[in-house]
Amino acid sequence: MTKAEQFAKKRKRRLVIRTIVLIALLAAVVFAIATKKSEKVLAIGDEAPDFEIVDLEGNKHRLSEYKGQGVFLNFWGSWCGPCKTEMPFMEKQSKEFKGKGVHILALNIKDTRLKAETFRDQYKLTFPIAQDKDESILRAYNVIPLPTTILIDPDGIIVDIITTGMDEEEIRQAMESIQPE
């Protein structure tokens, strides 16, 4: 091998190393920005974390058992105004969609059991209501404001996260969007 060839080879190797180093550094910066941004929030398109909870009637509900059906997962509190407003609409639509494979599951946050029960009786709610006592489901879904509604399609994928109260038409559309075909 001549000196010139050796030199050319060396230069090529150097170019490769430099390229790798620069790409690695760029990747590190992109990674740092990405991890700062996301802050481990669930997003639309993510798989809904599975959970299991016992409702006020004593029935066990496991999210994964609803595979093939739509789940309208609602987080609520008795003191929250918009929660109260949307409850009668939810009740009405839950009856509409019951035969169509869309279920409402309402998770009560922070209320006493007595309050959750009187609330259920007052609004004559028939869909299952459970209390997330240790707030682990609240945490798993990273829910901050109440009400928050998570729409989970028949494949167990989150298709929408709604962080405001809804009117009847919005609830109907929401339930339609997760209705199995």
């Binding site: 180093v21 740092a32 920005i33 700062k36």
Partner: peptide
């Protein structure tokens, strides 16, 4: 300190130190 350009700046600092 969470803005993308601040993190980029720190990344550039690291790159500069290394190279």
């Amino acid at each position: 300190y969470n803005s993308w350009w601040f993190i980029t700046l720190v990344g550039m600092l690291g790159t500069s130190i290394l190279i």
